[in-house]
């Protein structure tokens, strides 16, 4: 008998059953849970023999009949899809670039994957000319794609704000010349935010990603200045000014939790109570430091995500809702197949541009010179690298083809995989376990929202 491609899990008081191939999601009761537990064929006639001490025979048969009805409707035990093979194509459009506006930083955060801003190289800024030429590069290489994205990143991009302005100026010209639509995002540690910069960011509708790890005793452990002093009390008022000046829209507070701050649900509460409504906390990606998260921490962290579900639902019902990035999920109108198979599009439709104009598959892989694709002036030279990314779908990754979460996580982050395993096809094991837990939580939240008829304002950004 073919292995049943289903996944059942409990969050709070809710038991859920996901039919992996169809995506059908069901809330189930104890009888169904136990029927599915006691045999590889839950529809076989003698199941009641295993469960007769716990349930009436009629209830067990009734449960099995419901399972059969769902199977016949194509909502349970469905066979795998036959997906088209990913073929090599002549032209792959680029639709998003991450501009490394500065390979320098005014902070020395201990966990920084950019090696405190310089990516292990000589500290440098992107020139105005490179910033403009990068915009020309994406416009010339985007084919028929109309919606294009520019991320301003670093290091710290506010150290070189003229280059940000230069890129935006060029993008606005191209919007008129070539009927393109640019969207902008800027990631900052907030130290250099001024009224003038905040006004500019708001006027140009730039989404903001603001780095803050939580209360001072957590934030200032890792996010420090060159002299080792903390940053919380300096950046908090600037962050608040920035988000309240834009009517609390179009931003995320982006924090990192580490081995030293595993109880991150308390951190989320702290941030929510500070008035932040869009919050993201990510586990640090690192393997050999005193702050690295270990495999043995996973059970504790899974309980933290469940605690966060409880807090999230309480506040949702009480009207004091906040938005947690990893609980965002659209189960009625989600992304289409091509995105689910490949995720972020690193190396194909998404690339990073260094201050010199070099092209890399993503902002995290700038750390590794083996991934140098080419540059914005001469185009892509390493088509072999690009083809590898193009063909690395969830079906090419280790453990992903049979994983229940494959159509939700899209195989995880290439950068994290390479950072931890030196292979973009081998997902980071700890990150993978936590991502699966977050998906379970997000599905449970959506199920509870529908079951209890709660108004949900939808995912943001």
């Amino acid at each position: 008998m073919r292995k049943l491609d289903i996944h059942k899990f409990k969050i709070k008081d809710v038991k859920l059953l996901l039919d992996v191939n169809s995506g059908a999601l069901h809330i189930i009761d104890d009888i169904i849970w136990d029927i599915l537990d006691c045999s590889s064929n839950p529809l076989e006639e003698n199941i009641f023999l295993y469960l007769k001490d716990r349930y009436e025979k009629s209830a067990i048969i009734e449960g099995q009949e419901e399972l059969i009805k769902l199977k016949n409707k194509g909502l349970l035990f469905t066979p795998p899809h036959k997906f088209p093979t990913i073929h090599e194509v002549e032209f792959l459009p680029v639709k998003a670039i991450c501009l490394h506006i500065s390979h320098d930083c005014n902070l020395r955060c201990r966990y920084c994957f950019a090696k405190t801003g310089g990516f292990g190289r000589k500290r440098s800024h992107m020139s105005l000319e490179v910033a403009k030429s990068a915009i020309d590069f994406i416009a010339d290489n985007s084919g028929s794609r109309r919606n294009l994205e520019i991320d301003f990143f670093g290091g710290e991009p506010l150290l070189n704000f003229d280059a940000v302005k230069s890129a935006i100026e060029r993008a606005k010209e191209i919007e008129h010349e070539k009927d393109k639509n640019f969207r902008f995002t800027l990631t900052t540690n907030a130290v250099l935010l001024t009224d003038e910069i905040i006004d500019y960011l708001n006027e140009h509708n730039i989404s903001l990603i603001l780095s803050l790890d939580g209360p001072p005793e957590i934030n200032d452990l890792m996010r420090v200045k060159p002299d080792g002093s903390g940053t919380y009390y300096e950046v908090l008022p600037k962050i608040k000014k920035a988000i309240f000046s834009r009517e609390e829209k179009n931003y995320y507070i982006r924090g990192t939790y580490t081995k030293k701050s595993l109880n991150f649900s308390d951190t989320v509460i702290h941030l929510a109570d500070e008035g932040f409504k869009n919050i993201s906390l990510e586990p640090v990606v690192s393997s050999d430091k005193d702050y690295s998260i270990k495999k043995s921490d996973i059970p504790f962290l899974e309980r933290e995500y469940e605690k966060l579900v409880e807090i999230y639902m309480e506040r949702l019902k009480g009207g004091k809702t906040f938005n947690f990035f990893h609980f965002n999920m659209e189960i009625f109108r989600g992304p289409c197949l091509s995105r689910r198979l490949k995720g972020c599009g690193a190396g194909t439709e998404y690339m990073a541009v260094t201050p010199k104009g070099e092209l890399y598959p993503c902002h995290q892989l700038v750390n590794y010179e083996d991934f140098l694709l080419g540059d914005i002036y001469n185009g892509i030279k390493r088509h072999d690298i690009r083809k590898t990314f193009h063909k690395t779908t969830i079906f090419e990754k280790e453990n992903c083809p049979d994983c229940w979460a494959r159509f939700f996580c899209s195989g995880g982050c290439y950068g994290n995989a390479y950072s931890m395993n030196k292979d973009i096809r081998i997902p980071d094991e700890t990150g993978c376990a936590l991502q699966k837990k977050r998906i379970e939580c997000a599905l449970a939240i959506q199920a509870m929202i529908k079951r209890d008829n709660i108004k949900w304002r939808g995912a943001f950004l």
């Binding site: 996901l18 639709k95 189960i331 992304p335 689910r340 995720g343 599009g345």
Partner: peptide, 25 residues
């Protein structure tokens, strides 16, 4: 008598390609 409550017939939405959506990360 109801043991199963179907929340959605597909949590993948209309999964089954124009590329105009926002990049994920």
């Amino acid at each position: 008598k109801k043991h199963i409550d179907t929340i959605t017939i597909s949590a993948y939405g209309k999964m089954l390609g124009c590329g105009e959506c926002k990049t994920s990360c």
